[in-house]
């Protein structure tokens, strides 16, 4: 019997190894480039939002000097709502992109901090607008944590639902408490409202601890509304 001639195609294995490695490096480099582009995009939208805020402040300054605010207030309200929605959209993106990032966690922290500050600023601002314009807007300050709160995503889902449903009549300001030792303002608020449990909702200076289901939130919105039609939803 004739034995088969066996070879070892070492060269082929090496060539394939090199090609695989190159494609892999390309994939990983693209991933890194993508990560940087995402950061840049988030920073840019942050700048745009700063401009929006300045414009809003100007509008408010003008309106607060007027005797009759009934014509101007709706415009301000819509502008405010749009800015806040942009902000929450960006915040979602930050969280989504951060998950896919292997390296720049410090950069993401920085951006998250900026967004948290923006959120607080808008919250204060919308409280003032509510008084000036006598609006029936519900402001919810929502304390949560990405890392140390398992049920928070559930609360987030319910809040997003109401946000979609009520549109500009409900404003939600999510605050990640993991920021508190980096950001003193968060600490002040948490002490002020005595936040010890997560998640916690603050509506009209009242604090609501623990998770609130769809039905419970619906009742809360009803309690804090001037317009009792909302109690029907």
């Amino acid at each position: 019997m004739k034995k088969v001639k066996r070879n070892l195609n070492t060269r082929l294995y090496l060539i394939v190894g090199v090609i695989t490695f190159l494609i892999f490096s390309l994939g990983i480099s693209l991933g890194v480039i993508l990560d940087f582009s995402r950061l840049q995009y988030l920073e840019e939208s942050s700048y745009f939002q700063q401009d929006d805020y300045k414009s809003l402040q100007l509008q408010y300054l003008y309106i607060s000097g007027l005797d009759d605010t009934s014509k101007s207030c709706p415009i301000l309200r819509i502008a405010l709502e749009e800015s806040i929605e942009d902000l929450s959209f960006s915040l979602e993106k930050v969280q989504e992109y951060e998950k896919g990032s292997a390296f720049n966690s410090a950069e993401y922290e920085k951006i998250k901090k900026t967004y948290t500050l923006d959120n607080l600023r808008y919250w204060l601002f919308s409280k003032r607008v509510k008084e000036t314009c006598q609006d029936d807007i519900i402001n919810i300050l929502y304390f949560y944590s990405t890392d140390n709160c398992d049920v928070c995503p559930n609360q987030g889902t319910v809040l997003t639902y109401f946000k979609k449903k009520l549109k500009d009549e409900l404003l939600v300001f999510p605050i990640d408490v993991d920021m508190w030792n980096k950001e003193k303002m968060v600490k002040i608020l948490m002490t002020q409202y005595n936040v010890t449990k997560l998640p916690t909702l603050i509506i009209d200076d009242n604090s609501y601890e623990g998770i609130y289901s769809k039905e419970k939130i619906s009742r809360l919105i009803c309690e804090h509304s001037m317009n009792k039609e909302r109690c029907l939803i």
Partner: peptide
């Protein structure tokens, strides 16, 4: 959690396609 009420979501769809949302590294 939302008791299957998806109507508000359908009414407020934010259609935005951002190339940055695709993970082109692993995707490649």
């Amino acid at each position: 959690l939302i008791r299957f009420d998806i109507l508000p979501y359908l009414q407020n769809m934010r259609l935005s396609i951002n190339i940055l949302d695709f993970d082109i590294g692993a995707g490649l």
